[in-house]
Structure formats: C-alpha cells, structure tokens
Amino acid sequence: MTEIKFPATWIDENRFEEALSSNDYPHETASAKIVFSFPFNCKVMIGTAVRLLSLANQLDHCCKNVVLDFSEGESGAMGYLNRMGFFDHLAPGITVLPDRPILSGAFVYGRTNRNLVEIEAINKSHRDQSLPSRLTDTLMESCSGRTDANELEGAAWTIFAELIDNIFSHSQTPLDGYAASQLYRNGNSLKVVVSDSGLGIMETLRPSLHAEYPNLVGLSDLQLLVEIFRQGISRHGGDRGCGLRGSAQKAIKFNANLEVRLPKVRSLLVPAQGTYQPNNKAYCSENLPLIWGTHIIFDFHLDQK
C-alpha cells in the first residue's frame, strides 16, 4: 500500500506536490492500493481538488485500488469537496472513508453561489456552452467595480473558452477533463482551474516539432511550455496555436499568474515584460510524480493594478 498523507492545513498546489512526492509515486508504484489521507483541519484548495480528482480517476482507470480517507468526515475537507461536486465525478470504484456523501452539495446548491463554479466535467459528448460565461461571472462578481471591468470580462471569457476548447482538442482519452473556479477573498484572488487527463500538450506537440518548428526541437519541456504561450505553437502548424497565445496575452494585461502542471513537470508563469516568464524563484519543477494530462490554474488578482 502507498499512503499519501496530506498535512493538517490548507493544501495548495505546492503542498499537494510535496505530499505526492513524499512516498512512492502513485502512478509508478508497484502497490495496488493507493490511500490519500486527509487529517483533521486539512483544507483543500480548488486547484488541488481538481488535480486530485483527475489523479484518482486515472489511478482507478489503471485498476489501482484507490481510497480517499477523510478523518474529519463531512465537516472537513470532504464537505468542501462535496459542495464542489467532487464526488459526483469521482469514479464509482474509488472507496471513500468514512462513506461517500449521501447528498451531493453541488446537486443541492449548484449554480446558486456566484463566488464559485462547481466542478464541471468536460468531454466530447457533453459540451456546456455556457461554461465560459459562468466562470467569467464568478470573476466579475468580485471585479465589477473595476474601471476596466468590461475589458476584463471579455478577456476572461476568451481565456476560459480557449482553455476549455484546448481540452477537447487534446483529450484523446476516455477520462473526463474538468473546470471549476473559486473566489478567495482573503487571498485577494480568483482561481480558475482547467484540467484534463489526456495526452499532455508535450506529447501531442513534440512529434510535430521536427516538421513544423525545427528550431524548437532542443528545448526542454519547460522551455517549450513557455513558447506555447509566447508564440502559440501548435502540432497543427503555423495556422493554429493562436488560442493559447491570445489567451496568454489577454491574461498578461490583467497580471494573472498561470500555473501549469504537465505529466512530469510544472511551472509558474508570471507576467514580465509583456510576456510570460517562468518564475524560477517560486518553483520550476521537473521529474515530478506522473499525472497524465495538462492542468492549468489561472490566478487573477482581484485588485486593479
């Protein structure tokens, strides 16, 4: 058995990675049973919730025996996850301790709180045309007083639409992708999370580099990641790729940070000199525990700069 123990505090993406790395890597271990343990006073942030959901479903898909063990029951992290619809999307074969919630909080309260967008599945057979607008509305709920509110609203909608569409383009997987958002007033930020379990951007892009972008062949995954957002490179060649690049340019105008987790690497991209640069001081990690897919968090600061 491999046990991933989360600490008794807020679990942001950094702590999530620390916990994953503290034991055998879940995808790579020979253990057939993977237990994720949430102690008392453990609180999960939205980025972690969505990544955990993707990872747990991936492990279940690989026939691992996955257990989510919530010491505090529904009064703790489990309650928040239930409110966000986490268990609605969790593979039925995964064990939840002490028990799966009887009622889905997202089902009961869904779409009633404009400070969040519950976890929404994204797959080719179900496309919620209103999802980019609903994600945008959570942002505008806190930012409507800004003098640049109209511009921000249009930019945010484009960013969310492009990111979600990117999941459709890259999925090639039976597993769903997910999107969600959560406002953190005390943290002065809104996090919008888009996550898929498909082939990562690198897996789809690398085979086309020799033909389409021979000058980029020698770049590391992290360097290539930056170029995806800077130049808009695409496996389909020069005509495509403008969506992610255009989204990044809009996000830069509003000083939004971009955290990207690929199967083995992750990077925090921060706006600098009109483009996105990796923030090497924050973290820029390679050789991480495997998580399939592409997982992106846009972090908007609520205050106007």
Binding site: E151, G154, A155, W157, T158, G232, G238, D239, G241, C242
Partner: peptide, 16 residues
Amino acid sequence: ADQDMLENWEAAASRK
C-alpha cells in the same frame, strides 16, 4: 464595436 471581439478576430486573421 466590441474591442475584445475585435482583438480576437485580429489575432485569428493575423495568424492565418
């Protein structure tokens, strides 16, 4: 008239 939509049309047209 919408500036954001104009930007998106421009980005797409420029790319092609």
